[in-house]
Design a protein around this nucleic acid. Structure first.
Lengths: 352, 352
DNA sequence: ATGAAAGCGCTAACAA
DNA sequence: TTGTTAGCGCTTTCAT
């Protein structure tokens, strides 16, 4: 037997079908759906009954052609760089999909050449396939925002406009971001509360704006507690083994008892190093990672970590999107969300 | 300053613009793009030059209205159940997006009520928003396939039609799946090669078809090597602590030296238990997980794991999709792909 | 090989 | 409050 799909596709009803059945004009059916206030209550009820009965849903193509709105938002879906953010993106995307649906939009995924951050956007724009974009990687110097602005394309960004902020200029587009500096400060303060005074920073290379932002939170917290940080800030690549070796090196030089890490990957590297030195995480040396990844939950004995409110980021982005698409004034273009600290045994002195 | 987006959106050119500029009719431009063979070479060249110059891309809504094809495939994006498959889905989705684009389709994400596996499909169908669906969770008894078939909606499935296969009937739709039994057999044979004879199975509850399929691979390999399995098959929930305790219980009863696990989560639970008993993974007890998740890569000392060829699954699905959408006969409706074994230190006797 | 006419299903604008 | 008219941009059909 063959799949019925191609042969007998069920033909959905159109406005005309509903209109005829309800004894009104097509326009009245359209109004019943889009401006119900215009109809007399009894007409409305009758029309909606037929709509429900036939299971009528407006044809998206026709509506899109007429209204010039696809009710689709584009999201460039990057390959998760091995060893990073995949679960992270997962939580975010799921929330984005759900929240977008609440304002009547679906999420369209597209890909692009890794080496060309603009690849893919233009074609969707020219074919009027999407109403707007959600841009997720506006780290320093990425050209998407400028490009989309030049094309007059609505968009919202996950990630603050570092350059503009740094230059003191007001950001010129709608964005949502998570305050990584605050997250690192929470982590550092937590370790200090646990009695640690020599708390090290294990971060990415200086070129990472996100990394330096988080690092500043560690510095702030250490300064506030009156603890010196000289020689305690270490930079490495985002890789378990690199972190492991950096930790061995550092521990041979200085009596560090706490580590705040820019990522869970590095945090796990610290745990490995401690294990190799016969030190118990939490009890003797406190460790906190960043992102609350699956790895942090599963690694022994549990890695404390800073958790980004990704679901909330998506919600805020969709709120902004709604404003931008409605051509409403967006007075509060930037929204900064605060992360939270998830404490596990790697930073607790008192676990069995 | 306001974002230019809403105010001066760049209006993309239409067929008419191109036609006028090239001195031909709109129809000729359409033909240049869809049936270039119909044009005289010089006309074709002239038209395409204008198309390129103006950056013309056909309006998707208009095309969709006319051809009744959205060039969109729907994918219901489930929330990654905490502790599972998120990175997995990530690799799959990325490959799906990239591959779909090669046949001119984009991926539309939608969500649905967790308790209703059919939620979301019907509305997209009635609004003719998508041409087809990719269904990712056709485990035993899920009703999506039957529903989509009844509506005449084209779809392809990641996941074999367990029931039909079990009943001996031919599968009635296009699917791709990964041979989990083979994966578990690879893992078991690998441990046996390392000299282990008492290799245990750590799996999910019996109700999981996928779990039982994988388990059968372990049984097969053990039988082939002549090792008894009585008392060595353990079932638990997919959770690190549950696995940890199950392992402690088992090790107190029997001198097991190898564990093949139905998931990395359980594999990591085994590693925790070994650690608590002062046993070194790999050297004394071999452990293999399933899915090659991030956790497997990051956990100490590295968890060997069965890796599913998710990228290839997506490629095969899109190939089937292409056939189904073209209403071509799909003679080979089911494609079974083989996983591979990634060996890390948890199953090697000889690591430093 | 090229062009003209028609119409996909919807909604904005206007008329009744 | 409801109906009529027109047209979004494209492709299918048919005429030239």
């Amino acid at each position: 037997m063959s799949q019925p799909s191609g042969r007998h596709p069920v033909v959905p009803p159109t406005l005309a079908t509903v209109a005829e059945r309800a004894g009104v004009s097509r326009q009245t059916v359209s109004n019943a759906l889009n401006s119900p206030g215009l109809l007399r209550p009894d007409t409305l009820e009758r029309v909606l009954a037929v709509v429900a009965e036939l299971g009528y849903t407006p044809n998206r193509a026709a509506r899109q052609l007429r209204t010039r709105a696809s009710r689709l938002v584009g999201l460039r879906f990057e390959a998760a760089q091995e060893g990073a953010s995949s679960a992270l993106l997962d939580r975010f995307v799921h929330s984005l999909v759900e929240t977008s649906e609440r304002i009547g939009h679906h999420v369209l995924l597209f890909s692009g050449d890794e080496d060309d951050p603009l690849d893919g956007y233009d074609e969707l724009l020219r074919s009027t396939a999407v109403d707007a974009f959600v841009v997720t990687d506006t780290y320093a110097g990425t050209p998407q925002a400028a490009f989309l602005q030049s094309r007059g394309a609505p968009f919202v960004a996950f990630g603050r406009p570092w350059d503009d902020l740094g230059a003191g200029g007001a950001s010129d587009w709608a964005w949502v971001d998570v305050d990584g500096g605050h997250g690192a400060r929470l982590a550092t303060e937590h370790l200090i509360e646990q009695g640690h005074t020599r708390v090290a920073w294990l971060g990415w290379e200086r070129s990472s704006r996100i990394g330096e932002d988080r690092r500043s939170g560690w510095e702030t917290a250490m300064a506030a507690a009156g603890h010196p940080v000289a020689g305690l800030g270490v930079r490495t690549t985002d890789n378990v083994d690199a972190a492991r070796m950096a930790v061995h090196r550092l521990l041979e030089e200085r009596p560090v008892t706490g580590f705040v890490c820019v990522s869970d990957t590095l945090g796990i590297g610290v745990l490995h190093a401690l294990q190799e030195r016969g030190l118990t995480p939490g009890k003797e040396v406190g460790v906190v990672g960043f992102d609350d990844s699956l790895g942090a939950q599963m690694v022994w004995p549990g890695l404390s970590s800073v958790r980004q409110p990704l679901e909330q980021v998506a919600v805020e982005l969709v709120t902004l999107l709604h404003l931008v698409l409605g051509d409403k004034p967006v007075d509060d273009r930037g929204t900064m969300l605060q992360p939270t600290l998830v404490v596990r045994r790697s930073s607790r002195r008192d676990w069995a």
